[in-house]
């Protein structure tokens, strides 16, 4: 049975409605913060803004604190309410999602650290075009995954799942170009390696956004589509409610 975004506000216990609503609100707040972290980290790298990079690095503590807070709230709901059906799926999806968001936060920190390293480089930095391109792609994925979560929209979630394959292809292709740069000019190796780490971090952000989208399908449909090929899923069963 499919559920909608107001399903969790119809309990006899208003307190329970409020607790589940808070879980969603706090998860969205964490999602917003993490999205901004990725955006700022990439901007700091592309524009050489060291102050912004330091700020991203420092803000990671806030992301971690939010993960602990939301996990704690989930534990409390499990212990006190023993949720079932869609309520249980919401709590499980939120627990899983905070873990992925926290990891995205870590990737943003990595990008910021590499931005600081690259700011010290005196030579021209190669590979920024690839960073800009892939970052735009994964940021859209992350934004869409969070929107899908907020709206319980499985169509949008499935779109994110499919996008991840494209990002993986773009990542492989960018890696090949960067290898060529290193072979052409050995002095660029240090900076190109940094860019490779950044691309790797962005590719991981895409993977985590893909995971978030899969949790939306689990939450709304009760279907666990992790480890399944998106092309083999029944499009009927995944139709928007």
């Amino acid at each position: 049975m499919d559920i909608t975004s107001d399903t969790h506000s119809q309990h006899i216990s208003r307190q329970f409605n409020q607790e589940l609503e808070e879980l969603k609100t706090h998860l969205m707040a964490m999602g917003g913060l993490v999205e901004k972290q990725v955006q700022d980290a990439v901007f700091a790298l592309l524009e050489g803004d060291t102050r912004l990079a330091e700020q991203v690095r420092d803000n990671d503590r806030q992301v971690n604190a939010l993960q602990l807070q939301i996990d704690d709230e989930c534990t409390r709901v499990l212990a006190r309410r023993q949720p079932a059906a869609s309520d249980l799926r919401l709590v499980l999806a939120v627990i899983r999602a905070t873990s992925d968001l926290e990891r995205i936060g870590d990737e943003a920190s990595k990008i910021a650290r590499n931005a600081l390293l690259l700011s010290e480089s005196t030579s021209t930095i190669r590979g920024l075009v690839e960073v800009r391109h892939i970052s735009e792609h994964v940021r859209k994925m992350l934004r869409d995954a969070l929107t899908a979560f907020a709206r319980f929209d499985t169509d949008l979630a499935m779109q994110v799942v499919r996008e991840d394959e494209l990002v993986d292809d773009e990542y492989s292709s960018a890696m090949r170009s960067l290898m060529t740069f290193m072979m052409e000019d050995s002095r660029s190796i240090t900076s190109v390696l940094s860019i490779m780490w950044v691309l790797r971090a962005l590719e991981r952000v895409g993977d985590h956004a893909d995971n978030l989208a899969e949790y939306v399908v689990y939450l709304v449909k009760g279907l666990d589509i992790r480890h399944s090929d998106p092309d083999n899923l029944d499009p009927q069963g995944l139709k928007k409610p």
């Binding site: 049975m1 559920i3 309990h11 006899i12 079932a84 059906a85």
Partner: peptide
């Protein structure tokens, strides 16, 4: 039935909804 019931009425009962 307790993780993904098929029908709304079951869902409402087991999750304490109006």
């Amino acid at each position: 039935l307790f993780t993904n019931p098929r029908l709304q009425r079951t869902e409402n009962y087991i999750t304490g909804r109006v």
